[in-house]
Amino acid sequence: MALLCSERPAFWPLVCSLSAGSMKRKISFLFLAMALALVACQPREQELTGGDPLEESYRLIDKGEYNQAIQSLEELASRDSRPAVVEALASAYAARAGVLVSRYWGAVVGFKAPLIQSQESRLEGLSGQALRVLSQVEGRKDLTGADEFSKLARFLSVLGEWQERIDRLPTIPARQRDDLREALGILENHKAPGGRLYRALLGLILLKSEINDGFTGWESISASLAVSFGKSPGKVKGDLLCVVDYEAFASWTRGLVKTLQSTALDVAVAYPSKKIEIEKAVDDSEKIASQYLRVGGRACP
């Protein structure tokens, strides 16, 4: 020990000092020096973010600072190609639109989505309304365009079936739907199945919100038909269906059909084994919708 100290006194001051002199005092000073090295108790910056800007963005979303989160994620997405970054950006827009897990979790658990089908529907709500009109028009050979109008009513009854299934999803006011559409656009070509499933969920929320606005144009159609059928069902004019203005309704349903088809295709990415079944359902819905929409929303040629 003494040899070491004499050779390298500058590098071994601690060891050399301990080998001589008052042991208790030296050790006390040593402990004091080490204790002073501890800074005053401060909350430890929890390494939750671990320095990852993506984690910091999650924190901003949880704090409700959506604008800052969006700004941070858009900058991060320009240089970080991780799928989680894109999904986080979409979720930030969705959060700003008011779509939070506490609002949609109840609908997600046990959700069973119907595929588009042209068969029976329930008799409640929009479905029942459409079916009641259908029951008055269907089979009426004296009414020109009755077949086409029947297809329209059946399509509307399917929309009603979707509405009942997604009733527990939140509704987003019209003024906040731009953020929701932005989120959908961000995830449109996303490859990750989880991100596409999230997009499908956002699509259903948009669908429900649009449906809840009211069946644009349909009320006037059914109201005018109800008046005519109510007066004298056997004496309605043959061209009654041809003079009804369908444009407003056509424009509204065009958007819904697009959303519904896009949602179904998102689900196909998340569940590849059901892709064929889903794509067939989308094709069926396309046929039903195009028969009506191709002729510009007119039941009559």
Binding site: R59, A88, A95, V101
Partner: peptide, 10 residues
């Protein structure tokens, strides 16, 4: 466990 992001839970 750690859960964050109340829009799309991570």
């Amino acid at each position: 466990t750690a859960i964050r992001n109340k829009a799309l839970p991570i």
